[in-house]
Nucleic acid binder design. Structure first.
Length: 226
DNA sequence: GACCAGGCACATC
DNA sequence: GATGTGCATGGT
């Protein structure tokens, strides 16, 4: 078996172990594509539980109507999303994104979906406050585009399993998946969701590592964190 | 009371 | 181009 086949098998095995533990997760936890996009911005370096409160507050105030959100003052918008942290910065980011959403696509998700992936990705990355992970989360989870999302947990898991050095850049890690697992939107969706859940439940506190679904794939005795 | 969370932009060297 | 720092709340 070639090393490329071994890599493919390892990535599929990692998926199967996580899937066996959690089952299908059917991400993203959002009711609408717009909510997913706003959540992608709000969850930057922030626990999802805090984002949920912010989205609930924003929904209460605006019904998540993009025009109503844009009409909020900076102070009102920041107050709504306070619980998600970095609220002044994120208020600005939301406004930048929603202005783009209106000016470029007339607030239409469908119009956005019609665009090719690469063009959308370039547009998103050009916006203040949207980097690679946020752009790819929006593309995959809100717009059903075929792109693999890399995050801090992905980095840890790849490094810990010796599949890539923890200093490897975002694109290298993304390529590792996109070139070695089947190109399937549902698979990309589940794989990233499973990585995040595994990371949340088993990487935060070291004693829990013993029950991690990926534990059996690791050399015995070593730490879970890189 | 530390430490961390589903990043990103910007300054500095 | 690599590395450091500010942003800020809420849970463990």
């Amino acid at each position: 078996m070639s090393s490329a086949d071994t890599l493919k098998n390892q990535l599929i095995l990692i998926f199967q172990k996580m899937f066996g533990h959690f089952g299908p997760l059917n991400w993203w936890p959002g009711d609408s594509p717009l909510e997913v996009m706003l959540g992608a911005i709000l969850t930057q370096n922030t626990a999802w539980s805090n984002v949920e409160k912010a989205l609930a507050s924003l929904s209460q105030k605006t019904g998540l109507d993009p025009e109503k959100i844009r009409q909020l003052s900076d102070v009102e918008l920041a107050a709504c999303i306070r619980s998600s942290g970095y609220f002044n910065q994120k208020a600005k980011k939301l406004r930048v994104f929603l202005t783009y959403f209106h000016d470029r696509y007339g607030d239409s998700i469908e119009a956005m979906k019609e665009q090719p992936l690469e063009r959308l990705r370039d547009e998103l990355l050009s916006l203040h406050g949207i980097g690679p992970e946020t752009a790819d989360s929006i593309l995959l989870y809100a717009l059903d585009k075929l792109i693999f999302v890399v995050d801090a947990y992905t980095r840890r898991i790849l490094a810990r399993h010796g599949l890539m050095h923890h200093t490897a850049d975002y694109h290298a890690m993304q390529d590792l998946f996109q070139q070695n697992i089947p190109p399937d939107i549902s698979l990309y969706n589940e794989y990233h969701a499973l990585i995040v859940n595994t990371g949340k439940d088993f990487c935060r506190t070291k004693p829990l590592c013993d029950s991690c679904p990926l534990r059996t794939l690791l050399p015995p005795g070593g730490p879970c964190m890189p």
